[in-house]
Design a protein around this nucleic acid. Structure first.
Length: 962
RNA sequence: ACCCGGGUGGCGGAACAGGUAGACGCGCAGGACUUAAAAUCCUGUUGCCCGAAACGGCAGUACGGGUUCGAUUCCCGUCCCGGGUACCA
């Protein structure tokens, strides 16, 4: 019987579906285990081989856990709101809901092909009103909450109002406006508009103003990566910063808990570090500097510094170009220069401002006054200081900060040395260990000790305060777009001003209205501003961003059909945290932080019982494309050759193309061309080789399928080829997997050719899940061979079934137990590539042993099942089992078959391995020394010398030191 | 620029806690079976040197240093590639 993956896989996929074998219950006596994939955005391009990498890994683990006796939740859904669908709608007039549905259907077909163990009855789509009803509901809870710093948790805004009525805001300083103070009496005297205005400064979801990339020509707001060199990626129109009304989430209130929470979860250190750095908690001081020549009582220049100890090393100040004081303080002489500089800055995206090595800046003409020395310090403005961080102004200490130093050097500003020998005059030294000099009352102090003293002095003088600062900003939570969740907010008075009122829960979901056009509304508003019925109701015209729906979807899977709640407490208490979350590292700081914040918020408000969503996180690497290149000749010379070769394109094989420029190359090409065009008279004057991407799917390894190539493009139908060894060899380039580069490989094609089981295993065999690597289809043959080799343990081409019920030998049992142990270990530590390799080694050994014994093969099938579920199920039933292999118990390793009494030790002389000796594992140091020193090869290397010592590491190695 | 990750044969990778570098697979080369092909099987495959052979030598995990009896693994510095940098998902 032949291995026919097509029949086997189709059959089991059908039966599994019919039997609802992947249905998961919220009630089980078995322990729960929740395996989650980051759900995909259903793009029009469909899945390529990069997507399923994580899905296959999680599927293997979910199946493995099921074999281990767990009740496993393994759901899938779609992050279905997003910009591409909206752009597609703008371009093609197709409603995003329709294109999204089509894309989802396509994704689903592709996923079904691969045989994932998803419980599809739990599928969620963020764009489904039944789902976003609850996204809106959670938003309303955020809107209706503030962060109580005393309780260190989110509380209903009602509690705040009651507190205001009693004590004013004495206990709750305003996070949105720290200067705001009022008493109970004042509060009660405020009118409703003023009260609501104040409350807005406290809400966890609040409305404010923020700068966006505004493109007047497109009439729309652009993402940073849609802006290239100050102009729009599409169309190349100018882009400027514009202040727009925006919703925000007060994630900064959760900064400390997001940091603390990292200690309770199992993420990689790199991931924790990235999130920690993103939050960027720093301790320092805010210091107010008087500005020279400004009237008394006018604004001071407030800077934030993490190094108050360097107060006397300040040589200049730098304020962000957006700083509100800039206009006020700029001197008349400097105004033209500053204005010119601002025009330049306005055209630059934040990304460019940060990435640029080039130093730019402009003197404002103003001076700050040093609070202790009284010196006048020039105030500059430069784009390297960002408005959003700290106070948007810094005191520059060039001897201690490299960027300040570079800036000082560039503009020829003086550098004061306050750290003596620690500063070499060539680069800044950020040390905290130096003893301060030139620092007045701080002289002689070690820098790290000086910090406290400096702050104390500043506080005494009333010009500075100790300050904890976060690099993280509040999360912009609105988009001027159509294809997103509408905000369940009505503006009384006028749209976008006045009072934001929450819609009642009964009005949810507030569904997206149908529109005919997706273009932007007036004044940078979203498309919803064009809908008269919408604006007539004074509904908010912004929509929520992509990460809204993905911030809580893992909870909806637990209770996907609940119409009374986003997720019942019973369901979330049962499933709790996601035990294993697999997804791309590109979501490290966005999605992961937002969803962690939402989880903490829902926990604070008592809706769920845990405050970290993901117990363990694995980041899958990216699959890069492996492009194939063909080399087309551009010819010039006699015999009208340029025209001829335009109509009959000529391609040279990679090896030939590599000779480009050499006389041999010229000769070889000339000869071939004369041949091709049957014109011996052709003389080539110039030969250019232009590399072109060719569809990787018509290349076998690196060998081009010439016939397929001719069919690929009509203009290549008559193409001619200059071969090497009768083959056309393509060039190889590793780059992003993208349609444009023709290097996209569709899993469907591979499944059709080799079967899902082979495809799954190959994708794992490629390398560690967490590592990025290029895709190369060629190697899949090896896995296919392995699967057929495994099949032959059960079936022989001529003899048919070959398995027997004889008792297994000790050797055979050793082999299978060794394999079980290796596969189990590998799976446990998500090393699926070595898991596959362990299965290969096992099958190779059993084949060598000619082992066809059911006792052994039974076990082999079960450990194979997570990796190749269809094949395992088929063989499982063929061996006579009547229940599914999905529910077989994972075989237990009998350790007694694995214990060895001796080991082949590598014997090294001075760290270089020279020989091997078989020595008992329980040998003592003395016995080992005797055995080793008696060995001829060791004697040879000792060359009569007495060894200094013999290093003996049990079960590892032996090293003789001479 | 900043933060994080990575760099090992012709290729993907293995080496799990500092202990035999190159498991497993691809590719390639040679061979067996076959009229032939496919399929399958066997042998070899880091480089260089010596040699009839070797279970002979030297070098070798991006590069330069260091720690150690011993470093792909730890530390310092450099280069290159990938991800992220707040409205791509």
């Amino acid at each position: 019987m032949e291995y026919n993956f097509g029949d086997i896989e189709k059959k089991w996929q059908r039966l599994w579906t019919e039997q609802g074998i992947y249905r998961v219950s919220n009630n089980a006596s078995r322990p729960k285990y929740y395996v989650l994939d980051m759900f995909p955005y259903p793009s029009g391009a469909g899945l390529h081989v990069g997507h399923p990498l994580g899905y296959i890994a999680s599927d293997i683990f979910a199946r493995y856990k099921r074999l281990k006796g767990f009740n496993v939740l393994h759901p899938m859904g779609y992050d279905a709101f997003g910009l591409p669908a909206e752009q597609y709608a703008i371009d093609h007039g197709i409603h995003p809901a329709i294109s999204t549905d089509n894309n989802i259907a396509n994704f689903r077909r592709q996923m079904d092909n691969i045989g994932f163990a998803y419980d599809w009855t739990r599928e969620v789509r963020t764009s489904d009103p039944g789902y976003y009803k609850w996204t809106q509901w959670i938003f309303l809870q955020l809107f209706d909450s503030f962060y109580d710093k005393r309780e260190n948790k989110a509380m209903p805004i009602e509690a705040l109002v009651r507190n205001f009525e009693k004590d004013g805001n004495a206990h709750h300083p305003c996070p949105g406006d720290t200067a705001l103070r009022f008493t109970a009496a004042e509060w009660s005297a405020f009118d409703r508009l003023r009260q609501q205005d104040i409350l807005m400064h406290y809400r966890l979801a609040y409305c404010g103003y923020g700068e966006v990339n505004w493109c007047e020509a497109l009439g729309t707001v652009l993402a940073n990566d849609e802006v290239i060199n100050g102009v729009s990626e599409r169309g190349g129109f100018p882009v400027v910063k514009k202040k727009l009304r925006q919703w925000y989430l007060r994630i900064t209130d959760y900064a400390d808990r997001l940091l603390e929470g990292l200690e309770t979860v199992d993420f990689s250190d790199a991931m924790k570090e990235m999130q920690t750095n993103w939050i960027g908690k720093s301790f320092g001081a805010e210091i107010d500097f008087d500005i020279f020549g400004q009237p008394a009582g006018s604004a001071k220049l407030r800077v934030y510094t993490t190094r108050p100890d360097t107060l006397f090393g300040v040589d200049f100040m730098v304020i962000a170009p957006e700083h509100e004081l800039l206009q006020t303080i700029t001197s008349a002489e400097q105004r033209p220069a500053v204005d010119e500089y601002l025009t330049y800055v306005k055209s630059r995206s934040e990304r460019e401002r940060m990435a640029e090595k080039k130093i730019t800046g402009c003197f404002t003409g103003a001076f700050a006054i040093h609070p202790f020395s009284g010196l006048h310090i020039p105030i500059w403005t430069s784009e390297y200081v960002l408005a959003g961080y700290g106070t948007g102004a810094i005191m520059a200490v060039p001897c201690g900060d490299q960027r300040d130093f570079t800036f000082a050097r560039y503009f020829d500003l003086p550098v004061t040395n306050i750290i003596g020998d620690h500063f070499n005059g060539l680069e800044a030294n950020p040390t905290k260990e130096a003893v301060l000099q030139n620092s007045s009352f701080l002289d002689g102090l070690v820098m790290k000790d000086a910090m406290v003293i400096a702050i104390k002095k500043l506080e005494d003088k009333g010009i500075g305060t100790r300050k904890v600062n976060y690099r993280m900003r509040d999360a912009a939570f609105s988009r001027q777009r159509y294809w997103g969740e509408p905000f369940p907010i009505v503006w009384t008075n006028s749209l976008g001003f006045g009072i934001a009122e929450a819609l009642p829960e009964t009005a949810l979901p507030l569904e997206l209205p149908h529109v005919e056009k997706y273009g932007p509304g007036p004044e940078g508003e979203g498309p919803l501003a064009n809908v008269p019925e919408w604006t007539a109701r004074h509904l908010e015209t912004n929509t929520m961003p992509g990460y809204a729906g993905s911030s809580w979807y893992f909870l909806r899977y637990m209770d996907p059909h609940n119409e009374d709640s986003f997720c019942s407490r019973a369901a979330s208490d049962y499933w709790g945290q996601v035990d294993l979350y697999i997804g791309g590292a590109e979501h490290a700081v966005g999605h992961l932080l937002y969803s962690r914040m939402w989880t903490k918020f829902l926990y604070d408000r008592g809706y769920i019982g845990h405050e970290e969503p993901y117990k363990r996180l694995i980041n899958q690497g990216m699959i890069q494309g492996s492009s194939r290149i063909v080399y087309r000749l551009e010819l010039d010379g006699s015999g009208n050759i340029d025209d001829l070769s335009k109509h009959t394109p000529v391609f040279v094989s990679a090896g030939v193309a590599a000779m480009q420029g050499s006389p041999e190359f010229h000769e070889l090409v000339s000869l071939a061309v004369r041949n091709i065009f049957s014109n011996a008279g052709i003389q080539l004057e110039s030969i250019n080789v232009s590399p072109l991407h060719v569809d990787v799917n018509i290349v076998d390894g690196v060998e081009l399928d010439i016939e397929a190539f001719k069919k690929w493009r009509t203009e290549y139908a008559d193409a001619e080829f200059i071969l090497e060894e009768d083959k056309y060899i393509c060039g190889v380039e590793v780059e992003k997997m993208s349609k444009r580069l023709y290097n996209v490989v569709n899993p469907n094609d591979l499944v059709a050719k080799y079967g899902a089981d082979t495809y799954r295993m190959y994708e794992m065999f490629l390398g560690p899940v967490e590592q990025s690597k290029p895709w190369d289809t060629k190697g899949i043959e090896g896995v296919y061979r392995f699967i057929r080799k495994l099949w032959r343990l059960f079936f022989d081409e001529t003899k048919g079934k070959v398995w027997k019920t004889d008792k297994a030998t000790e050797q055979e049992l050793k082999c299978i137990y060794r394999t079980i142990k290796k596969v189990e270990d590998a799976t446990e530590r998500f090393s699926f590539n070595t898991g596959v390799s362990a299965l290969m080694i096992g099958v190779n050994e059993l084949t060598d042993l000619k082992c066809h014994k059911k006792e052994v093969l039974d076990r082999l099938i079960v450990i194979l099942a997570p990796y190749a579920p269809h094949l395992a199920e088929e063989l499982w039933h063929l061996l006579g089992n009547t229940t599914s292999v999905l529910d077989a118990p994972f075989p237990v390793v009998e350790e007694k078959y694995l214990v060895e009494s001796a080991k082949n030790y590598p014997i090294a002389i001075n760290g270089k391995t020279r020989t091997e000796l078989n020595i008992a594992l329980d040998a003592t140091q003395q016995q080992v020394e005797e055995i080793v020193l008696a060995d001829d090869i060791v004697k040879k290397w000792l060359d009569g010398n007495t060894p200094k010592k013999v290093v003996y590491v049990k079960n590892k190695m032996i090293n003789v030191v001479v």
